[in-house]
C-alpha cells in the first residue's frame, strides 16, 4: 500500500464526508428545531441533481444553472413544508416517517414521469474536468477537489451563520425552547419555513454536486439518505457539530474500508476468503461503527442538549 494511493483515498473520503455533511446539516437542523423526521430529504437531493442537469442543458451555462437549481430546490422545499409538513410538527415520529415516506414515492414517480426512469447523462464544463497535481505523483480530479472546497466553505459559512448572526441565534433558541421563542414574539412559523427551505437548498447542493459522480436517476436520494441517518445518529441528532464530525468519520471509514479492507484481510485470510468477505464487510462497516458508537454513547458523540 503506497502513500500516494492512501492520500488519494483519504481525499475521496473527505469528498464523501463533505457531501454527507451538506445533507446531514439540513436534516439535523430540521430535527433539532421542528422535531421533524424528514425522510423526503433524499428527494430534495434528487430534485437538486435533476434541476441542475435540466437547467444546464437549457441555459448552456454551468455557472447560471447551479444557482438556479439551488433556488429551485429551495422553492420546492418551502412548498413541501407549507403544503404537507407543517401539519406534521405536532404529530409523533411514526406519523412523520410514514407521511414523508409517502412524499418519497410521489417525488420518485414525478421525476420518472418528467425525465424517465433511465439514468441521465450528465456533463461538466471543461474547466472542471481536468486534473490538478496535489503532490508530485498524485493528480487529483479538479471536480472532486472543487467539491471538497465548496463543502468546507459551506461548513464554515454555516458555523458563522449559526454562531454569529441573528438568524443563527433564533435557530439556536428555537432548538432549545420553541415555545419560549414563540412567546417572545418571533414568527416561529416563518422561521420554520426558512430553515426548512435552507436545509432543502443544502440537500440540493449536495445532489447537484453528486450528479456527475454518481448516477442521476429516480430513487438516487435513498441510499445516501440512510448513510446520512448513520451520520447524524453517530454525531448526535440535532447537533451541527456532531453532523460535521459524523460526516467526516463516516466518509473516511466508508471510503477507506472499500479501498483497503480487501488487501488488509488478504494478509490474514486466504485470497478467496478475502475476496468474499472484503466487500461484504466494507459495505457493512459504517453500520457496525454506528452500533459500536451507540453501545458506548447512546445519544451520539455530540449530544445536542447535553
Amino acid at each position: 500500500m503506497n502513500l500516494v494511493l492512501l492520500l488519494e483515498q483519504a481525499l475521496n473520503g473527505l469528498q464523501l464526508g463533505v457531501m454527507l455533511f451538506l445533507m446531514a446539516a439540513g436534516l439535523t437542523l430540521v430535527f433539532g428545531i421542528m422535531n421533524l423526521v424528514n425522510l423526503a430529504h433524499g428527494s430534495l437531493y434528487m430534485v437538486g441533481a435533476y434541476l441542475s442537469v435540466a437547467l444546464f442543458g437549457l441555459t448552456g451555462s454551468y455557472l447560471l444553472a447551479v444557482p438556479l437549481a439551488l433556488l429551485g430546490t429551495l422553492a420546492v422545499g418551502m412548498i413541501v413544508e407549507l403544503v404537507a409538513l407543517r401539519t406534521l410538527y405536532e404529530r409523533d415520529h411514526l406519523d412523520q416517517v410514514l407521511a414523508t415516506f409517502g412524499l418519497i414515492l410521489f417525488f420518485n414517480e414525478l421525476v420518472a414521469i418528467l425525465w424517465g426512469r433511465a439514468a441521465l447523462y450528465t456533463t461538466l464544463p471543461a474547466w472542471l474536468t481536468g486534473q490538478i497535481e496535489i503532490v508530485s505523483g498524485l493528480n487529483y480530479p479538479a471536480y472532486r477537489a472543487a467539491i471538497i472546497a465548496v463543502g468546507l466553505a459551506v461548513a464554515l459559512g454555516l458555523w458563522y451563520l449559526v454562531a454569529r448572526t441573528r438568524l443563527g441565534m433564533l435557530i439556536r433558541a428555537g432548538a432549545s425552547n420553541r415555545t419560549m421563542v414563540a412567546a417572545l414574539g418571533v414568527n416561529i412559523r416563518l422561521l420554520y419555513t426558512v430553515v426548512f427551505g435552507f436545509g432543502a437548498a443544502l440537500a440540493g447542493l449536495a445532489g447537484l454536486m453528486a450528479g456527475p459522480l454518481y448516477t442521476v436517476q429516480p430513487g438516487m436520494g435513498e441510499d445516501i439518505l440512510i448513510e446520512v441517518f448513520v451520520v447524524i445518529v453517530i454525531g448526535g441528532i440535532g447537533s451541527i457539530r456532531g453532523a460535521l464530525a459524523g460526516a467526516l468519520i463516516v466518509g473516511m471509514v466508508d471510503t477507506l474500508g472499500r479501498a483497503f479492507l480487501k488487501p488488509i484481510l488478504g494478509t490474514v485470510l486466504s485470497p478467496t476468503a478475502a475476496e468474499a468477505a472484503g466487500p461484504a464487510l466494507a459495505s457493512m462497516l459504517i453500520y457496525l461503527l454506528m452500533a459500536a458508537v451507540l453501545a458506548v454513547r447512546p445519544a451520539g458523540l455530540f449530544p445536542a442538549r447535553g
Partner: peptide, 27 residues
Amino acid sequence: ISIRTSGLYFIMITLAFTQMLFYLGIS
C-alpha cells in the same frame, strides 16, 4: 442494541441494521 435507545434513535437504528443486512444480501 436498539431497545437501549428510544424515540428517533430507535427508528433510525432499526432502519440502519436492516440496511446492513440488505448489503450483506447483495454481497
